[in-house]
Design a protein around this nucleic acid. Structure first.
Lengths: 147, 147
DNA sequence: TTCGTTGCAAAAGGTTTGCATACCA
DNA sequence: TGGTATGCAAACCTTTTGCAACGAA
């Protein structure tokens, strides 16, 4: 059923033009970006990549823990390269999309405590913070003309 | 554009057989439940309700703040009637679906602090905790035979 | 009688999969 | 050359919307 010698080993993965392009595009993006946005940016820049490949590359990065992921309110997944080791939490402006990494030691500690108290194992947590940033709060209009 | 006399007033809403059925079904559900599951339970129980109506009722409850909502990992929305005033956070078992409401004052305080520090306004937070419950952790099999 | 509600069907999104082709190692 | 990656189209799923018919107040 399983070949014991390969179980758990990361599969070798090939360096291709498309994957390099997706990675570059993801790093160039200022903030959290959706698969569709990445694909549009690549296409607009003259790089021919299939939307499917963008999704597959993002899934690969997700499996390897190399991206942070949040969901916007429609359920769309937004990706950002993970800056260092360990994960981060972000505060995202609902109006203009600006995102800030925030200190979250308190949440990490709380999650650990919850795991201990409930006797659950392998506890994972997702925290999503959203609000209106200072700049957007100052202007009552709807669009995100700054940034 | 707006009739000032009605702005902000909750619309009158009619008591119908279908809404009553959805509400009852939601209360009867042991844990977080999806629209599809509610609809299947109702249909199986002989109550004819359209899936559309289930969704519309859940949206109404959401607007009125009468349900807690989490997303499972596929992005599907799961609903549960909100027990008291104020929102709750839950720890959900990834194997059997068991959910526990957990104390989250630490997170609430942290969210408030973040709002203050960043000068963001109208800060909202979503926290999702998942893990493996004690019972599931004890049995290595995949299914959720207990509960 | 009025106007909110229902339900079907269809649309709308985002995401995944089947499969023949292309291409890295 | 062998097996992975690609890309198109189509499938999938959940959720929303258009619209004619229904029914609570």
């Amino acid at each position: 059923m399983h070949d014991p010698s390969t179980v758990g080993l990361p599969r070798p993965w090939r360096a291709t033009r498309q994957r390099a392009a997706v990675l570059r595009s993801l790093r160039d993006a200022a903030d959290f970006t959706s698969a569709r946005e990445l694909h549009e940016a690549l296409t607009a820049g003259g790089t021919r990549v299939g939307l499917t490949t963008v999704y597959r590359t993002l899934r690969m990065l997700e499996r390897e823990g190399r991206v942070d992921i949040v969901r916007d309110r429609t359920g769309e997944r937004l990706y950002r390269p993970r800056p260092t080791d360990g994960h981060r939490h972000y505060l995202v402006c609902r109006r203009c999309g600006l995102s800030l990494a925030v200190a979250a030691e308190a949440v990490e500690r709380w999650a650990d405590d919850v795991a201990t108290d409930t006797h659950f194992s392998a506890v994972e947590h997702t925290v999503e913070l959203s609000g209106i940033c200072e700049q957007c709060g100052a202007r009552p209009d709807r669009d995100a003309s700054h940034q």
